[in-house]
């Protein structure tokens, strides 16, 4: 012990130098946005590669389950295809508004209050900011950042995310928010008391934004709080989509987004 203290004391110049240098580097990175983003990029690139490798391995163990899910989904789609009365022809493709492309989640998080996911598609595959992400059971989130091969998705399990939702088969809509505790329960606020809501009603996307098309499943009504002082219900929604085990997702590209946003007051 005495020797350690001695060696520190004999090199105290170097120690002070290193402390001052580290402190100035800390100031540099902490107070300048340019340096901060540069450093973030560097570490992100490194972490993304790790995530991808580990997700390859995990994928292998989940193959059986994934196959089962895909078969189910195929069946579902076939049912819809054969039962629909519409005649498919070329003109439908031209007037199609939403395009879907598949992606895979390579890192998922639900333990923080601001959760982000990462998917393995980026600008190379035509992904842009503010596109919606959904799985076969329901919505997942909104893309907030894109690099060449990857993008990060703000999960609906993020206290900053606000999603327009409505009660199925009615036109009463509200805002879907998460309070940051249970990853299965979301709050649907701003639904007026005039609406006829029952426990077990299903909640779907409202189609009032440029991100998600109408009528994508979100969940079912689980509990209704009505506060006498307010004109709005406080509805708790149980997600049909298990956010903690989602893997294969679709990115939704709204072809008319620019046109819709060019109307000045639409986004308000």
């Amino acid at each position: 012990m005495q020797r350690i203290i001695d060696s520190i004391l004999s090199n105290k110049d170097v120690l002070v130098f290193i402390i001052l240098l580290l402190f100035s580097l800390y100031l540099l990175v902490d107070s300048n946005h340019y340096h901060q983003s540069k450093l973030n990029n560097l570490s992100n690139n490194f972490v993304k590669v790790l995530f991808k490798e580990s997700s390859y391995i995990k994928e292998y163990f989940n193959l059986k389950n994934e196959n089962k899910k895909l078969v189910e989904e195929n069946l579902n789609l076939k049912n819809i295809f054969y039962s629909s009365q519409e005649i498919l022809n070329d003109s439908i493709l031209i007037s199609q508004k939403y395009f879907f492309s598949s992606a895979k989640i390579i890192s998922n998080n639900f333990s923080f209050s601001k959760n982000y996911l990462m998917i393995d598609k980026g600008t190379k595959h035509g992904i842009k900011k503010e596109m919606g992400v959904a799985s076969k059971n329901g919505i997942i989130g909104i893309i907030v950042d894109v690099t060449e091969n990857y993008s990060s998705v703000m999960s609906i399990l993020n206290i900053n995310s606000k999603i327009n939702a409505k009660i199925n088969n009615s036109f009463h809509f509200g805002t879907l928010e998460w309070i940051g505790t249970n990853p299965n329960i979301l709050n649907l606020n701003d639904v007026p008391k005039i609406a006829n809501v029952k426990i077990g009603d299903s909640i779907v996307t409202g189609g009032m934004s440029t991100i998600f098309p109408e009528n994508i499943n979100i969940g079912v009504v689980f509990k209704i709080d009505s506060i006498s002082a307010s004109n709005y219900y406080k509805i708790k929604v149980k997600l049909t989509n298990d956010m903690t085990s989602a893997r294969n997702v679709y990115v939704i590209n709204n072809k008319h987004k620019k046109e819709m946003e060019s109307l000045k007051f639409f986004s308000n």
Binding site: D13, V16, L20, S24, L28, V29, D30, S31, N32
Partner: peptide
């Protein structure tokens, strides 16, 4: 060392690049 660090830090306030001159002067 400490006086040089603070000299650099004071200069940084003029150029709004906190830490650049402080590190250079310490070195």
């Amino acid at each position: 060392l400490i006086i040089s660090f603070f000299f650099g830090l004071t200069l940084d306030y003029f150029t709004n690049s906190l830490g650049v001159n402080a590190a250079a002067f310490t070195i």
